[in-house]
């Protein structure tokens, strides 16, 4: 960890100003990923803008009937918030599937979006990594890539985005509100994270100095039929190999609307409009789910140690859709798959 200066901003404007007033700044919310990366010398900011005094912790209903989640509200406060639990249980389940109670008490909603990949090579300065050091090469390709991407990867990077919360936010079509020197703008969730392409050092589409101030959930919460299913190498406190956010709106046994997003498989939460289209208007049967699963992994490519993810994703999608169709009671709040 290199030396840095730190200010604790009292307002969003002050934070944004302070950020741009220094050479190599970073915002620090909960700090759970940034300090981890700084101790590994992967991140080396020389100035930190502390966000934990900002008045961005509220969770409130919007005029459109949606829910606005403050950027510095913690993941725990969000997951257990009565409105989130009642109206967006998919989001609650996804947050609670991630990290640990301690980390969820620290991690902020904005920070969750800013998490960087868990790729072993990204974290280890002894190995080349294009995301950490553009142009140095991707060690995960041809290396140990059990946790790596099967969809949307590039020859420069096969990292995955590690968040659970973001998978649910993608499925729920959240909107990210950001503030920069040029004022406030809104970013559709699917446009927030990016695929690695030839610039894997860029995880998202934020411009320099922009600060996430809120996440807005649209009115539709799929609170009746949902499932966040996460598969990992131990029951809890581990990153996903594959996760599925499934949300259905049913009319009897017919699917009226559907959302499907995958975690652990790509550089961003992975949505497949084609798969969702295959669900809409169809009977909520295993046959339908299988078709959607197949469409979701269309074009998937294994890298060796992660080949299994393709079949695992198919099966997890079918299971999550079954759980969703069966209704919220099919899973408990943690859905940690322990019988």
């Amino acid at each position: 960890m290199n030396p840095f200066t730190l200010t604790r901003a009292e307002s969003v404007d002050a934070a944004v100003r302070d950020f741009s007033g220094h050479d190599s700044s970073a915002y620090i919310g909960g700090g759970t990923n940034l300090l981890d990366l700084m101790k590994e010398n992967v991140a080396r900011p020389t100035h930190l803008v502390g966000l934990n005094k900002l008045p961005l912790t509220s969770i409130e209903t919007t005029a459109e009937g949606g829910l606005r989640l403050g950027a510095t509200a913690t993941n725990a406060d969000t997951a257990w918030h009565p409105d989130v639990q009642a109206r967006y249980p998919l989001l609650s389940q996804a947050i609670l599937a991630g990290a640990s109670p301690q980390l969820r008490n620290m991690a902020t909603n904005g920070g969750n979006l800013m998490q960087r990949t868990r790729c072993y090579y990204f974290y280890d300065l002894a190995t080349p990594c294009n995301k950490r050091e553009p142009g140095s090469g991707c060690s995960a390709i041809g290396g140990y890539n059990r946790i790596h991407a099967i969809l949307g990867a590039s020859e420069q990077c096969i990292a995955t985005h590690p968040s659970d919360m973001c998978v649910a936010l993608a499925a729920l079509e959240a909107v990210v509100h950001v503030r920069g020197n040029g004022g406030e703008r809104r970013i559709k969730f699917e446009d927030f994270h990016r695929l690695p392409g030839d610039a894997p050092e860029q995880d998202n589409t934020l411009k320099a100095g922009e600060l996430i101030v809120a996440l807005e959930l649209p009115k539709k919460g799929f609170e009746k039929n949902f499932s966040y299913l996460k598969l990992r190498d131990r029951t809890s406190y581990a990153f996903a190999l594959v996760s599925v956010a499934a949300a259905l709106e049913l009319d009897g046994t017919t699917i009226r609307d559907a959302r499907l997003a995958l975690g652990g498989v790509a550089h961003k939460p992975w949505r497949s409009p084609a798969a969702e289209d295959l669900l809409k208007g169809q009977p909520a049967t295993e046959a339908t789910f299988r078709k959607a699963a197949e469409a979701s992994v269309e074009g998937a490519v294994g890298q060796g140690a992660n080949d299994f993810k393709i079949e695992l994703a198919r099966r997890a999608i079918v299971r999550a859709l079954k759980q969703a169709a069966a209704g919220g009671k099919a899973t408990n709040v943690f859905n940690n798959s322990n019988p």
Partner: peptide, 16 residues
């Protein structure tokens, strides 16, 4: 080089 050389990626059981 061992690559999963940390406690997040070298898994031992948790309570659950």
């Amino acid at each position: 080089r061992y690559m999963n050389h940390n406690y997040a990626e070298y898994h031992v059981p948790v309570n659950a």
